[in-house]
Design a protein around this nucleic acid. Structure first.
Lengths: 109, 109
DNA sequence: ATTATACGCAACCAATAGGTTGCGTTTTAT
DNA sequence: ATAAAACGCAACCTATTGGTTGCGTATAAT
């Protein structure tokens, strides 16, 4: 994966996670099971359509996937995207650590 | 830290990182050194004020800090916030792994 | 002393995001 | 056969975002 598309994808995932409601949805989906929209909407102070919109944002970012079963739309979390985002942060952190180390070495010269 | 404020803070950081321009800025700041606004703006197809706005978003989210030196505003990356966000993803991932394991166990019963 | 640099503040604008409501369709339950 | 549940689509609205420009001020360079 090119660095540009890596950054791009990461930004999309971060953006998708950058909302309390969507983080709550991700949390509810973190049990690894499939959930319908009404299930996910239950307890949220938000209309079903509001929840649907958020789920579509997550889907667009690749954070969740969705399949229709009967009259239900069942959503599942997709870990790959989450891992991609975490990798980004890990890389950034590592880069920073290296830099600190280099700076320290310079000072001690 | 309560779970609610943890989620809240995470969402804020994710939101701050959810923009290509800001990710680029974070990347430039990942050398661990201080950078002025003009330095950071160099090469970006964006006005200085545009960059300033983005930096303020990052600052608000705790991703960077800023101190005035002479006529310059020098920005530095703050790893704590990045680590908080990464922790969130790690937790989510772990929770998911556990769930999968549980589901597998159930199936094999 | 004058000029150039680096910045902050504020007004402004278009586009997007987050949310709603209304309505139609398919699937399930009675 | 009817009714209810679960959804998608689309219109609509307001607040926020990402971006601009203009202008003023403090610091640094000449």
């Amino acid at each position: 994966m090119s660095n540009k598309s890596f950054v791009n994808k990461s930004a999309t995932v971060f953006s998708a996670l950058g909302d309390m409601t969507r983080l709550e949805l991700v949390s509810r989906l973190s049990d690894g099971e499939q959930h319908s929209i009404v299930q996910l909407a239950d307890g949220l102070e938000l209309s079903r359509q509001g929840v649907t919109k958020h789920l579509n944002v997550l889907k667009q970012a690749g954070v969740v996937s969705c399949k229709r079963v009967g009259r239900e739309s069942r959503f599942t979390i997709r870990t790959e995207s989450i891992d991609t985002a975490r990798d980004y942060l890990t890389r950034a952190s590592a880069q920073w650590e290296e830099a600190i180390e280099r700076l320290r070495a310079t000072v001690e010269d």
